[in-house]
Design a protein around this nucleic acid. Sequence first.
DNA 1: ATTCGTAACGAAAACGTTTTCGTGTTGACA
DNA 2: TGTCAACACGAAAACGTTTTCGTTACGAAT
Lengths: 357, 357
Amino acid sequence: MKRKITLKQIAKELDVSISTVSKALSGSKEISEDTTQKIQAFAKLYNYRPNNIALSLKNRKTKTIGIIIPEIVHHFFSTVIRGIELVANKRGYNVIVGLSNESFTKEIINMEMLAGGSIDGFILSISKETLLKQDYHHFNATINQGMPIVLFDRVVNEVDCDKVIVDDFKGALKAVKKLLSTGCKNIALITTMDYVSVGRLRTQGYLEALQDGKINADTNLILKIDDSLDVEGHLEVLEKEIEQFFKNNKKIDGVFAVNELYAVTAMKVARKLGFKIPDDIQVIGFTDGVLSKHATPSLTTVSQHGQKMGEKAADLLIDRLELEEVGSSEYIEENERDEFFKTVVIETELIERDSTK
Amino acid sequence: MKRKITLKQIAKELDVSISTVSKALSGSKEISEDTTQKIQAFAKLYNYRPNNIALSLKNRKTKTIGIIIPEIVHHFFSTVIRGIELVANKRGYNVIVGLSNESFTKEIINMEMLAGGSIDGFILSISKETLLKQDYHHFNATINQGMPIVLFDRVVNEVDCDKVIVDDFKGALKAVKKLLSTGCKNIALITTMDYVSVGRLRTQGYLEALQDGKINADTNLILKIDDSLDVEGHLEVLEKEIEQFFKNNKKIDGVFAVNELYAVTAMKVARKLGFKIPDDIQVIGFTDGVLSKHATPSLTTVSQHGQKMGEKAADLLIDRLELEEVGSSEYIEENERDEFFKTVVIETELIERDSTK
DNA sequence: ATTCGTAACGAAAACGTTTTCGTGTTGACA
DNA sequence: TGTCAACACGAAAACGTTTTCGTTACGAAT
């Protein structure tokens, strides 16, 4: 159980100075070939690796990026992490994750833990509670401390930073238009409460599609689920709600749901009530997760390309980190700010499966 | 865009020494009440936070633990991470994740990246390729460097460390006995190749249950899937294989699958072939993921309690880290080693749903 | 013989902490 | 008046690097 070897120990062992060892290992031609050889051989023998922490301290950067997401047991967020990790690793960065668990306080605590020098920048998706409170001071605070942030998916205008989003509006639009084009006349929307921006945008896409199709939106056909209770085990409640919804609106012949779970639950309930899918009722969901793929019938869905979002977010962050390195962005004119931060939109894709005609 | 403030800057600003500032902030009674007040006020005003990196360097520990898993887009592994993060955070640790992507090389690279001082210990699950090569030198190497490892789920005898596993054998046993008790006479097994230990153990449980039930195992009823191709989009291949399997063995009235995906795919194929579930064929899977819960019919399954595994693994690792802190474990007698490392078994639980009678 | 250049190396600072060990200034007490 | 403890604070080392700036010695050039 020998501790890791350091430059100092090599220096003492070989009776040279620390600087000589450092230079020899980095292949500096300042050191004679003889000593370089000797030192490198010794270092390899003892499997010397420079201490990252010491390097971080010296270079004032850690080469790791912090991710904070509301929940990790969630297909979409996992794919985003996979994307982040992929490009981060490729570009020499590590990834450290914190879970806000949809809680405002935990989000702050996590950010403070990491902002204390552990990371060079953040990639994060805002927790529901934070969106509800509309309190974004902690984001702006860390940005002002010179730590860049990239927001993804659940973003907000009040924070000035790079963002990666999905075209929720257009995705929903495409989905509902698809339903219309296959003959649906009474399309229901199953959505969440409005404070999560993505839910709001998808609702807007739904409405817009109806309007384009010269159909008056019927508020009875919109079911808003209080997703504070989608935590665990509230499946029965969800099913009951949807079942009642169907019973109250017998004319429904199409369903657009803002997430996978609502969509497959709707299918399950519909089948239970004797409807055939897609003959009697067609269903489209959002998020191309494992549920959509393996549901029966398999679910037509709007794919968000989570991995691509992660990749893009990581690229944006690292680009900015390495741009700051040259120190050109010390000071930004107020009127340049608008162009300074990018918002990248990842296109959605309608993946047609067996729940639509 | 002001950089983070340091002790040195506070010291200069208030015209005292760095040591005074440090002591004042830690509330040392060595400093007069006046100066303490003044310094603390100033620090709060400028939102001073000690630099984690500097602390890590000084204390020679980082208070972060490294996780390396084969894949993050996977319900089981996400729940484990959630468990790890939960107790890690509670005990003041951060969590940094690396993805091996089932690759031997990426596993090593990731470990080397993190072992360079970035973390205090590892929690990991071995990649398939590593298991196939049976090359575990990198694990033993890092352990010998004094960095503790906790292995979970996919473990291996050749590595001497704490382990957290699931009672795969007993879980499979329970599942198959359940099938027997509900009248199944010809129970099929859908499993993976043998080199992944968990698959092997579950197979053994299956065999044992049959033997206990005085039934001769029929090798025709065992389908081994080459899971090098379960990556993506090989659903059709999987379905075809299972379909052929069913057609070759018409007498099958029960299926035990070593994971969720195989189980729901088996259900889908069975239904397609005209069988009623659970009337004609009963199905049980392993891993209680989102698929099992929402499949139609919902899948009876052996729950692994991933979150609990993660919690336990984190506790084991941190316990060891903080035990080493007191320096009592400098040297371990060879014959004490057996008792020195624990292997914790997390009990499985059979969750009965609608795919069984 | 003096100067100069260069090759080969070492000393020291810096990154931001904590902590040990001084050190100077009081006030009290003999 | 001299001694000593207590008080309040500062200097410096240490963690492990990299890098800048010496410094030495030696051969060549003038």
